[in-house]
Design a protein around this nucleic acid. Structure first.
Length: 571
DNA sequence: GCCGTTTTCGGCCCGACTGTTTTCAGTCG
């Protein structure tokens, strides 16, 4: 079940969308959009707030607060219902077609009665768009093409896919640019990526643009100018290349990193200081360039320290920066160990020796081997196999004086919250992760009880991939997370941030909620192969989006402190 | 609709590209 805040935010956002279709005031629309973001990110549950409490939410005033009261009392908002009666919600869905925005969608609905994507396709086939104001032959072609794209691609791709594509493009174009890097949602480490943004600095954009459109995986050039070129690729996402003069690098990187909401806030601050911020720099009112060579300069001139990209979502980072209260975020360099990994003893694809050697090459100080336990029957684990692995680890340890190899297991959390093995056998491990691998559809009360029971087990140190979601394939399980986090904090059980690009679990919003309860975290690769160990950057990015500092993350701690944490585990 | 170390009224981020336009609206990020 969605949190009330998410439902309420979605309704306010729908109100903004419907108003933009029916031609409402643009500033009012922006006010709703801003409020929707604030509501989604507000830590307190809106369903428990009265009018006074609701007005304390940033960007929510008297009018929107009353709409939220309406939502709390009736489960919906009257104005949204009224607008839905005027414009079917399917018209709103039309704007998902690239090149078709609210204005054109409304025109299609009013003049042709087109209210769904299927009806639009039929209208195109029948030639009913001919002669419609603003719709020439090229528009028809674009819409037809847009419908096709909408149907074939699930639009966004996993961060791992986008990162690999961006790395390749940056490497291919680097010789032609003074500076080049990826920006956009990929730099902010969002879990899925719509478009890959690449930014380059060069006084001569032409050769870059030509090399870009000639890359082997480019299937189509959507737009091609001197400053911006957009292409589609058969690898999935659209890629935008922006080229700016070298002296604009800092302002451009700040701008193209976004998010859009964050940029609006920074530009508002500039305007209040009688300045103008664009991708070309920070300027005085008379158009004189002040700074723009580095992002640090731009933020500093606006009265803020540099803000890490992962925080730039207008989720309170501007306020924190202005108060000089930004968190010192955890980075990949802080990671001293990995507490959830596999070998070919169960479903891994590399041997114990290969996995440990890779961990040593990463410069880790400790590394836990946590193969699956017997309750996941398919792996056919036995006590004897586990004890034999422990002997191999003890022997292997002699070869790695600087890497402590811990012996653990990834236990299975059963439907009732119980785990594999008895206390006696469990006490032989250095540490244990425990995860949900089945019975994903339990109701919220059962699932919550299940997690709390697991947390209360003195041998469970980390809850693995807590929501069990697979991005784009399996929904998160339904639990009362506040209750689970309370239990985790009370018992000294860490919540995992799993680094797999299709898991990223806990997700950033739940990390931030858990943090408020004093929960500790473990950023683990869950590596099943040598290559999987490189996924650490995606988990760290997710942790950053959840505002975690090294102190919140147990595997950034020196080994003695980690051992104290494990030993202090309470039932 | 929100908001206020210039304001309780009058502001509200900024630019690139496309297509259909004879000077600009719509879309996108």
């Amino acid at each position: 079940m969605a949190r009330a805040n998410d439902e309420a935010a979605a309704l306010i956002q729908e109100l903004a969308d419907l108003l933009s279709i029916t031609g409402g005031d643009a500033f009012k629309i922006r006010a709703y959009e801003k409020a929707a973001r604030a509501i989604a990110g507000y830590p307190e549950d809106v369903s428990g707030l009265n009018l006074t409490g609701l007005k304390k939410i940033p960007a929510v005033g008297e009018a929107i607060a009353k709409k939220l009261v309406d939502y709390n009392e009736t489960g919906t908002i009257r104005q949204v219902e009224e607008l839905r009666a005027q414009v079917p919600s399917s018209v709103r869905a039309l704007t998902a077609i690239p090149t078709l925005g609210p204005k054109k969608a409304l025109l299609l609905y009013q003049r042709l009665g087109v209210a769904t994507v299927d009806e639009l396709e039929a209208a195109l086939d029948e030639g009913r768009l001919h002669g419609l104001k603003g719709f020439g032959p090229k528009s028809e072609e674009n819409i037809r093409h847009g419908i096709e794209l909408l149907r074939q691609t699930g639009d966004r791709v996993l961060i791992g896919t986008a990162a690999a594509l961006a790395d390749e493009i940056v490497a291919a174009l680097a010789p032609l640019a003074e500076r080049i890097t990826h920006a956009g949602s990929l730099r902010r480490m969002r879990e899925t990526i719509g478009d890959v943004d690449v930014l380059a600095a060069s006084a001569d954009p032409r050769p870059l643009m030509e090399a870009f459109t000639a890359l082997p995986f480019v299937t189509e050039v959507i737009a091609g100018g001197d400053k911006k070129t957009s292409v589609r690729t058969y690898r999935g996402p659209q890629v935008d290349l922006r080229v700016v003069p070298p002296e604009s690098w800092g302002a451009a990187l700040q701008y193209f990193t976004g998010s859009q909401a964050h940029n609006i806030r920074t530009r508002e601050i500039a305007v209040k200081a009688k300045l103008k911020l664009s991708e070309y720099g920070l300027f005085t009112a008379s158009g004189e360039l002040i700074v723009s060579e580095t992002e640090e300069e731009v933020y500093e001139r606006l009265g803020m320290p540099w803000i890490p990209p992962a925080l730039r979502e207008d989720g309170g980072e501007i306020e924190a920066a202005l108060a000089d209260a930004l968190p010192d975020l955890v980075t990949v360099e802080h990671i001293k160990g990995d507490l959830h990994t596999h070998t070919d003893l169960t479903d891994g694809r590399a041997t114990l020796e290969e996995m440990v050697r890779t961990a040593a090459e990463r410069g880790l100080a400790y590394y836990a081997v946590t193969d699956h336990a017997p309750d996941l029957a398919m792996h056919q684990m036995t006590d004897a196999k586990m004890l034999a692995q422990r002997e191999r680890i003890r022997a292997l340890q002699k070869e790695y004086p600087d890497l402590a190899i811990l012996h653990g297991s990834e236990l299975n959390i059963g439907p009732d919250g119980s785990v594999d093995w008895d206390a006696d056998f469990l006490s032989g491990f250095d540490m244990c992760v425990a995860s949900v691998h089945s019975h994903f559809n339990q109701d919220q009360a059962e699932m919550t009880r299940r997690f709390i029971t697991a947390c209360e087990n003195p041998h469970v140190h980390v809850i693995g991939h807590p929501t069990a979601r697979l991005i784009g394939r399996r929904a998160p399980v339904d639990a009362d997370w506040d209750e689970v986090f309370r239990a985790a904090a009370r018992t000294g059980t860490a919540m995992e941030v799993n680094c797999f690009p299709d898991r990223l679990d806990l997700p950033a919003d739940l990390i931030r909620r858990a943090l408020r309860f004093g929960v500790k975290f473990s950023i683990d690769t869950d590596a099943h192969s040598v290559a999987d160990q490189r996924n650490i950057r995606f988990g760290v990015g997710t942790a950053q989006r959840g505002w975690l500092t090294p102190d919140d993350v147990i595997n950034t701690w020196p080994l003695p402190r980690l051992r104290e944490f494990l030993a202090a585990k309470k039932g």
